[in-house]
Design a protein around this nucleic acid. Structure first.
Length: 856
RNA sequence: GCCGAAGUGGCGGAAUGGCAGACGCGGCGGACUUAAAAUCCGCUGUCCGCAAGGGCAUGUGAGUUCGAAUCUCACCUUCGGCACCA
């Protein structure tokens, strides 16, 4: 027991030591480091493994409060899992390639590497100040050659496997600066270049792709994955599988061309084929030139030019007025033999389906709007049974079981699904159509016309005769980035003008060659980094197969929902591709996913340097300590919620930790103004007080354990506050310092340890010292278990409603029978008053929850 | 526009079919102090009422249910993503 126990009611205020957060946090961080407590022995087989991954930061220069709000609760999970006996691996690294480093280089002339590595150095210090248990031994930096060489290696493997290929694709191009622009460098609805304001145009370039569509179907499965449903829905919609048919329309001969070209369209509704009254091609469709009548040429050219200036979002907006032009030629409906006009319109995209559609205005909203605008025929071919003669007022797209085909030749009268099948069969028999599946998902365009990224390891042979595109042999990797660059003020790819980089012999024939100057998308780095964490310095292979087999998939991944479709799909693609290359066994990367919310700037906007609303935690850490900042971030909102930043309220969390400090170190003290009446202690009776406190501690432990599992940190901290308020009430009474008090304090420190690791460690060590026990870190202790006997209540308070309105509350002994409960309820004065003159129709009695009396 | 999510006191939020507002901030009152700060204790959704008590209340409108913040539909607002920001 504590020495103060001899003078229980002495006002201890003046004796109480102030908590020095700065010194304490530094001391314990140094001690943990010295003991190597967070270095994971990946070969330890004595404990179950737990791979905890949090999205690695981009080294923008400053760690802001948003980074803390991702990483701090994740660290609490790491500590909580360790207390449950898991061997936790919790690595950290830096997503170090990307545009901001190039922008900095353009602006100030420093090499992107210099800027990036200086930022990393600074951020390492800030990350350490959190007191998080990152395993720094596993640190990885994507811009370092020992990481990016394996991007190159995977590229070569994908090329061999046919998972990487080259094709034309449009990019945003500034015609004045002659550079490719990133999306964020195109500004406003006018789509102007961010540097010179020139309207941006699309330009087609040869680009590298990864064949993500090869796994489209498999990515629709989520076998054994515990992922949030909204994320899965977004991914499913993004992949956008639709089943239907490809139908061939043949171009009719006319005065300027002989006809015979085949236009293939994709449709999900072959049953509506008789209602196809015109065709629409994407403006970029390869047949447009051949099918344009001379008198239409000028108009068609103008329209194609205009559509190339638009973004895809604009083109697909359904509320926008439809635009388009006719080519002047016609095609033949393969089932009705009718001639239909051919148009181009920007709401049809070349990259989706076949880049051409059959328009069925009666049964598609966009086609309907288009037909109305240009006065094209609208023919109804599907109708609810019994309403076959109603007029067409709007596109009818509903799918009800009793839709039938109308005005569809011999198919009329068939139910819609049967009609679709029959029409498909008829087309197939004629060689004019085939069942087909289309995806909205496109292959991943991985090449970037930028200097600060992974160089793509191929050479363009310039010898005569040329060997063409030659992959660089594996044993010549890595292709290193130059150590200096010449950045032009308007941007663009600095590698292109670096002759030392570009000129290289052809690896096949030894003749002249030009190196590829495109680099890989930074999403390539983030698609496999968690495997590399397990062997970040391995020279012979991208990953350690044995360790990956033991540690993967990742047990828990935490990060922002903004990555729902791109990063998280690319990662799944990589898992499947690497499994098919025989490099790994598991086909999914992350078993459980959690998306935390974002902390926005004080203005409610996303935090970014350019907006100037970035919140720096360093000052708060200095003033309150890391523990208070950690706790406040977890307390201020549910982890998954977005919220603008405000430090209002941090004082409350700070006071909470100080109260914990007080009740642990000074249980017998009293504050001025505090009553010394023992009746104000937790229990109803003073002699039961100790037990009441212990019961409260055990109930808290039960609730907190459950809340930890669901990452409900804000609610969990509220529970710990309630418990601490219990201690405060009992402080200075006979309960303080009792065996029950002491045990309750022990539980409190264990529950607090994952959240506020420094102060918990400090108080834990002092308890041990006082008890004359040898020091052992609180973070090496096991999570305690609650005693079921201590959490049971002996009475329940039952709300009583009359017609759903709360009228009374009745306290009853636990375990009372249903009949006795109802008798007791009916006997209540307030209940009787409310029932007077009314007839009881029904009594709804939810055992242990409430009684609701329905009256008339 | 399309896909996904959210909307509860003065503020952050709790309650996911059963007592709306836990916990905290702020505010008010009190204790301690020569005083202030710090600390501690109490009260605090709103309207009517001296009170007992009652009415209203979870973005808006409808619905399901004995009972809805919670489920369903429509609408409004805000946030994330829309393929070269990461």
């Amino acid at each position: 027991m504590t020495p103060e126990a001899t003078t229980p009611l002495a006002p201890a205020r003046s004796h109480r030591e102030r908590y020095d957060h700065t010194a304490t946090e530094q001391r314990w961080q140094a001690r943990w480091e010295e003991l190597g407590m967070h270095r994971t022995d990946l070969r330890d087989e004595t404990r179950p493994k737990y791979y905890l991954l949090t999205m690695y930061p981009y080294p923008s220069g400053d760690l802001h409060i948003g980074h803390w709000s991702i990483k701090v609760p994740t660290d609490a999970i790491a500590r909580y899992r360790r207390m449950h006996g898991y061997n936790v691996f919790f690595p950290i690294g830096f997503d170090a390639f990307g545009l901001p480093a190039e922008n900095a280089a353009i602006k100030s002339g420093v090499h992107p590497a210099t800027w990036t590595f200086a930022n990393i150095e600074r951020m390492r210090g800030q990350l350490r100040s959190m007191g998080a248990t990152f395993d720094w031994n596993a640190e990885l930096i994507t811009a370092s050659p020992d990481f990016y060489r394996w991007n190159q290696w995977f590229f070569l493997k994908f090329l061999e496997k046919g998972l990487a290929y080259r094709a034309m694709a449009p990019v945003d191009w500034c015609p004045k600066d002659l550079v490719v622009l990133a999306r964020e460098q195109v500004e406003g609805v006018e789509r102007r270049c961010w540097r010179c304001g020139t309207p941006v145009v699309k330009r087609d370039l040869e680009q590298w792709f990864y064949r993500t569509t090869a796994y489209a179907d498999e990515m629709l499965e989520y076998r054994d994955l515990d992922w949030p449903e909204p994320i899965r829905t977004m991914q499913r919609n993004w992949i956008g599988r639709s089943e239907g048919a490809e139908v061939a329309f043949v171009v009719a001969p006319d005065s300027v061309q002989p006809g015979g070209h085949e236009i293939r369209v994709f449709t999900t509704r072959p049953d509506t084929l008789f209602g196809a009254t015109f065709l629409v091609l994407a403006p970029e469709h390869p047949l447009v030139d051949a099918l344009t009548q001379p008198e239409r040429r000028e108009e068609v050219q103008a329209y194609r030019h205009e559509s190339r200036r638009k973004s895809e979002i604009d083109r697909l907006a359904t509320d926008r007025e439809k635009t388009g032009v006719p080519l002047g030629s016609e095609a033949i409906n393969p089932i009705s033999g009718e001639r239909v006009p051919i148009w181009i319109a920007d709401y049809v995209l070349l990259g989706y389906g076949t880049g051409a559609i059959m328009a069925v205005p009666a049964h598609d909203a966009r086609d309907f709007a288009f037909a109305q605008r240009f006065e094209l025929p609208i023919r109804r071919v599907i109708a609810p049974r019994g309403q076959e003669d109603a007029a067409v007022e709007d596109a009818f797209v509903a799918h009800t079981p009793d839709e039938v085909l109308v005005d569809s030749g011999r198919f009329s009268g068939m139910p819609a699904p049967e009609g679709a099948r029959a029409i498909n069969e008829a087309l197939e028999a004629d060689g004019k159509g085939t069942g087909s599946v289309t995806y909205r998902l496109r292959d991943w365009l991985v090449s970037r016309q930028r200097a600060w990224g992974t160089p793509i390891p191929v050479v363009y042979c310039q010898a005569e005769p040329s060997c063409g595109i030659v992959p660089i042999p594996e044993d010549q990797l890595p292709v290193l980035l130059p150590e200096d660059y010449e950045f032009r003020p308007q941007g663009g790819n600095a590698l292109e003008s670096d002759e030392r980089f570009v000129r290289t012999p052809c690896p096949r024939c030894g003749g002249a060659g030009r190196r590829e100057t495109d680099t890989l998308d930074t999403f390539v780095d983030s698609s496999w980094y968690w495997w590399r964490y397990l062997s970040p310095h391995e020279d012979d292979a991208p990953l350690d197969r044995e360790l990956v087999a033991r540690w993967c998939p990742v047990d828990q991944y935490t990060g922002g929902a903004e990555h729902a479709v791109m990063h998280l799909l690319y990662s799944r693609f990589f898992a499947k591709a690497l499994a098919d290359l025989g490099l790994i066994n598991e086909r999914e990367p992350f078993r459980r996913l959690f998306n935390q919310g974002q902390i926005l700037g004080e203005d409610g906007e996303r935090m970014s340097k350019s907006r100037g609303n970035v919140q720096d935690p360093d000052e708060l850490v200095q003033r309150f300590g890391a523990d208070t900042v950690r706790l406040f971030l977890m307390f201020m909102k549910p982890w998954e919620a977005d919220a603008p930043w405000s430090a209002t309220g941090i004082g409350g969390v700070d006071r909470f930790l100080k109260r914990v400090w007080t009740v642990v170190l000074d249980p017998h003290g009293q504050e001025g103004g505090e009553s010394d009446d023992p009746e104000h202690a937790v229990g109803i009776e003073p002699e039961a007080g100790g037990r009441e406190l212990l019961r409260l501690a055990h109930r808290t432990l039960r609730d907190v354990s459950e809340l930890y599992e669901g990452y409900r940190f804000n609610a969990l901290i509220a529970k710990l506050m309630e418990l601490t308020n219990g201690f405060m009430r009992a402080r200075g009474t006979a309960v303080a310092g009792s065996a029950e008090w002491d045990e309750s304090i022990r539980l409190t420190l264990l529950m607090l340890a994952p959240l506020a690791p420094h102060i918990a460690e400090e108080l834990w060590s002092r308890r041990l010292a006082e008890a004359g026990q040898e020091w052992r870190s609180v973070h090496l202790e096991s999570w305690p278990s609650w005693d079921p006997a201590l959490v049971v209540e002996d009475t329940i308070e039952l709300p009583v409603q009359v017609n759903g309105k709360l009228r009374d509350r009745v306290t009853l002994p636990m375990g009372i029978s249903q009949a006795d409960t109802e008798r007791a309820v009916m006997d209540r004065e307030k209940v009787r008053a409310n029932l007077e003159g009314k007839e009881v129709v029904r009594v709804i009695h939810v055992a242990g929850r409430l009684v609701n009396i329905v009256v008339r």
